[in-house]
Simulated assay, not measured.
Amino acid sequence: MASTAARTPLIPPKDLESFQQHLAKSTRILALLGAGLSASSGLPTFRGAGGLWRTHDATALATPEAFSRDPGLVWQFYSYRRHMALNAKPNPAHYALAELARKKDGFMTLSQNVDGLSPRAGHPAEKLKLLHGSLFDVKCSDFFCQYFESNNYTDPIVPALAIPTEEDPTTTEAIKARELDIADENVSLPELAIRDLPRCPTCKRGLLRPGVVWFGEMLPSGVLDDIDQWMSQPEKIDLIMVIGTSAKVYPAAGFVDSARAKGARVAVINMDRSDKPMGGMSKNDWFFEGDAAQIMPEILKSVIGEITQMSDLAEQAS
Rank of each mutant, 00 (worst) to 15 (best):
Y80M: 12
A62L: 08
N91M: 05
L52K: 14
M84E: 08
L97H: 03
S79N: 09
A96C: 10
P92L: 07
W75D: 00
A93Y: 02
H56R: 15
Q112A: 15
A62F: 10
D57K: 06
K103Q: 14
T59N: 15
D115T: 04
L73M: 08
L110T: 13
A85P: 00
Y95I: 06
L86W: 00
E99N: 11
S68N: 09
G106K: 14
L86Y: 01
V114Q: 01
A66K: 04
F77C: 03
V114T: 08
W75I: 01
A66T: 03
L110D: 08
R102F: 06
G72D: 02
A60R: 15
K103M: 11
A85G: 00
E99T: 12
N91E: 03
G72S: 04
S79L: 04
R81C: 04
Y78F: 13
Q112L: 15
Y78H: 07
E99I: 08
N91Y: 09
T59S: 14
N91P: 09
R54A: 14
N91H: 10
W53R: 10
Y80Q: 11
M108D: 00
A58K: 13
G72P: 00
T55D: 05
V114C: 05
L97A: 02
A93P: 00
L52G: 01
M84P: 00
S111G: 04
N87T: 12
R69D: 03
G106S: 14
H83V: 00
W53F: 14
A66L: 07
E65H: 12
P90Y: 13
A58C: 11
R82I: 02
E65T: 14
D105G: 01
E99S: 10
L110G: 09
N91W: 09
D57W: 03
P92Y: 03
